[in-house]
Amino acid sequence: MTAPAINITVHGTPGPQGSKTRNAAGALYESSAKVKPWREAVKSAALDTLAYDETWMPLNEPVRVDVVFTLRRPKSHYGTGRNAGVLKASAPEYPTGKPDLDKLVRSTQDALKDAGVLHDDSVVTAVFAAKAYVLTGADALSHPGAVIQVWRLNKPEESES
């Protein structure tokens, strides 16, 4: 692996996919209202990136997906009054609450498939995923969103056959 097959930066609030709820009529729907806008944001960012590569074909080979989700800190992490905007000493360094990392990955992989980055999300054989707060790490953005890299795992000569 020398370089990612594609780098995508997504702007928006990451939305988890996975939990379903039944309404009074018994129909299933996503519990999170954030999943649909998130999948659209990922798809849009991927399509914008792919617009510059006229030869792109959806990846139908083993790939690794690296994704760092950047989340906004809750208001409770900050002081009040004259300390508004000042991070409390007790504020955690890493986001350990909801949304669940695996559900964020699920919605993101499905959007990558919908955008034509992946032939199917079953080609993903390895995932590195992390959650970070805004501006708290090397791959954390200055606003909510995600940095996604998709890596081909086959050697170049294996991909050509």
Score class of each variant (00 low, 15 high):
Gly145Asp: 05
Ser76His: 11
Ala33Gln: 12
Leu47His: 08
Leu50Val: 07
Ser32Asp: 06
Ala132Ser: 14
Val86Pro: 11
Gly12Met: 00
Lys34Pro: 03
Thr49Cys: 08
Thr55Gly: 03
Val127Met: 13
Leu118Lys: 03
Val147Gly: 04
Leu135Gly: 04
Arg64Ile: 07
Phe128Val: 13
Lys88Tyr: 04
Trp56Gln: 04
Leu28Ile: 13
Trp56Leu: 02
Ala24Asn: 12
Asp66Gly: 10
His77Val: 02
Asn7Thr: 03
Pro99Trp: 04
Ala146Val: 03
Val68Asp: 04
Val63Trp: 03
Lys88Leu: 11
Ser107Trp: 05
Ala111Gly: 09
Arg22Ala: 13
Thr9Gly: 04
Asp114Cys: 01
Pro144Glu: 05
Glu93Met: 14
Tyr52Leu: 08
Lys20Thr: 12
Ser159Ala: 15
Pro144Phe: 02
Glu158Trp: 08
Gly116Pro: 05
Leu104Cys: 01
Ser90Tyr: 00
Ala27Pro: 00
Gly137Pro: 11
Leu135Glu: 14
Leu50Ser: 02
Asp121Gly: 01
Ala41Cys: 02
Gly81Leu: 02
Lys34Ala: 15
Tyr52Asn: 13
Ile148Met: 07
Gly18His: 03
Gly26Leu: 01
Ser76Ile: 11
Glu158Val: 11
Lys88Gln: 07
Val123Gly: 05
Lys20Met: 15
Leu104Met: 12
Ala45Thr: 05
Leu141Cys: 02
Tyr94Ser: 10
His11Ala: 05
Val124Pro: 06
Val150Asp: 01
Val35Asn: 11
Pro99Gly: 02
Pro58Leu: 01
Leu104Glu: 02
Ala111Thr: 05
